[in-house]
Amino acid sequence: MKWNLPNILTVLRLLAAPAVAVMFLYFTRPYADWFALVLFVTAAATDWIDGYLARAWKQETKLGAMLDPIADKAMVVIALMVIIAFSSWSAWLVLPATVILFREVFVSGLREYLGDTAGTLKVTRLAKWKTALQMTAIAVLFSQGVFEHYLGMSILGMDEALVQDILQGKEEDVLGLNWKVVAMEWSGRIGHWLLWLAAALTAVTGWDYLMKALPHLKEGR
């Protein structure tokens, strides 16, 4: 195994994947959401950085080629698990997440079965966009948790009628309830839209990979 900066960044990204879930075990919300968001965005940024450095410095290795997709999948799968766990199992999250998780498991199984042949099936540009879109959607959904809990902290102890009066402009909005509601709602909408789009791209790239793998799955080869 050859260790260099790109490989070290990839390993750190792999370790960051379970750390995202651990944030919710040791910190209360919204601090857990903040830590998870910052950790996830930072780790996602290394996905581009380590690849760029490996190509620019001509330090591409078998270790990096193996760990990079594993780190990406671990980040996406664990982050989706955390988001769904705190979303009361909303169908609008569970359905696209199921498509994404099924594709990743299915393609990983195909790659394992194909062995060395899998290396000849190159990663397409669409697959790279798929990963980027998945990570963007997850980051936006984490930000929704931040806004949601800051809103909850702001209205804690308030009478429901007073909250409605503030949102309707009948009372002064000292605590900024209106912008927190807007931020929470729009981050949720955008996050959901991006996740559904990511799920569609995930399904397309999964089908494309299956079609490319079919000739290698025939008996007698």
Rank of each mutant, 00 (worst) to 15 (best):
W179H: 14
A161M: 08
A161Y: 02
G169Q: 06
G152Q: 10
E185M: 12
E185R: 14
W179I: 13
M153F: 08
F147V: 09
E148Y: 04
W196G: 06
V146D: 12
M158R: 01
W193F: 15
G191T: 03
N178G: 13
L195C: 12
E148F: 06
A198F: 05
G188E: 08
E185K: 14
K180Y: 06
E171I: 00
A199K: 10
L194I: 12
A199D: 15
V181W: 04
A183S: 11
D173F: 07
A183Q: 04
E171H: 11
E160H: 09
L175I: 00
I155A: 13
D173K: 03
L151N: 03
A161K: 11
Y150A: 01
H192R: 10
G157S: 15
L167W: 04
E185P: 01
H149K: 09
Q164R: 08
A198T: 02
N178R: 13
M184L: 08
G157H: 08
D159S: 10
W193L: 15
L195P: 07
Q168Y: 06
D165A: 15
L156D: 15
L197W: 10
N178I: 05
D173C: 10
L197P: 08
L162K: 14
V146H: 00
V181K: 13
V163D: 00
L195A: 10
R189E: 14
K170L: 13
G152I: 01
L151G: 05
G157L: 09
M153P: 01
W179A: 07
H149C: 07
A198I: 01
Q164F: 13
M158P: 05
L175T: 02
L151M: 07
H192N: 15
D165G: 05
M184N: 12
L177E: 08
I166E: 08
G188R: 06
L167F: 04
V182Y: 10
I166R: 01
I166Y: 03
